[in-house]
């Protein structure tokens, strides 16, 4: 009973705030609603007992990705009147994409089009993979992720690494003539290399 009440609370807030993300006038409030959506999704994860995923969602998406979103949105200057002027023009395309997406979702998860026997085999396979009782879900994910799916996992890591290097290369500029602090050079300096003593003859200068 309590769990059901919490489910409807989280799910309701999740959908409402997801709607506010696209309906909000101010981009910053949109991002804040996005964060609320993530947060409620994490709540839903906890309700089904996937506490590790919930915490990861908060740490990664809310704690890091959404912060960067906020950064970008606060920095750029978006003209909303201009953005909204093309709304009706793009509406049919948006609706089309939405409908295609909906049909695909129904095909994948709905029993309407899929043979129930296939779903049952899939459920049986998932049950066979399920870890023994008493294993915490952090351990369960770790056991699967670092054994059966190790290479896929590593490949995903490499994709992220390449994306990161790409972003750094795109923004890296070497301007000539800019003075930069070189910590290594500073530490390397000693009394001998930085001070020069000269005996200056009287009344002649250096």
């Amino acid at each position: 009973m309590v769990a059901a009440a919490f489910f409807y609370l989280f799910a309701g807030v999740c959908i409402a705030s997801a709607f506010m993300v696209i309906a909000g006038r101010n981009p910053v409030t949109s991002v804040l609603f996005l964060i609320l959506t993530f947060f409620n999704a994490a709540g839903l994860f906890i309700l089904i007992g996937a506490e590790f995923l919930a915490m990861m969602l908060v740490v990664v998406y809310v704690g890091a990705v959404a912060v960067l979103f906020l950064f970008v949105v606060m920095m750029i200057d978006v003209d909303f009147a201009e953005l909204r002027s093309g709304f009706l023009q793009f509406l049919p395309v948006g609706v089309l994409v939405g409908i295609v997406f909906l049909i695909e979702l129904l095909l994948v998860i709905g029993t309407l089009f899929v043979d129930p026997a296939i779903l049952q085999t899939a459920a049986a396979a998932a049950a066979a993979d399920a870890p023994a009782v008493g294993v915490t879900n952090t351990e369960a994910i770790g056991l699967v992720l670092y054994t059966d799916y190790l290479f896929v996992f590593q490949a995903a890591g490499f994709v992220l690494l390449v994306a990161m290097i790409g972003a750094i290369v795109l923004t890296l500029r070497h301007k000539p003539g800019v003075k930069r602090q070189d910590i290594g050079k500073q530490v390397e300096r000693s009394h001998e290399t930085s001070v020069e003593l000269k005996s200056v003859p009287s009344r002649q200068g250096v």
Partner: peptide, 12 residues
């Protein structure tokens, strides 16, 4: 069970 992650999440 995920106490450390919870603290990390909240402090982030």
């Amino acid at each position: 069970n995920v106490g450390v992650l919870y603290v990390l999440a909240i402090s982030s």
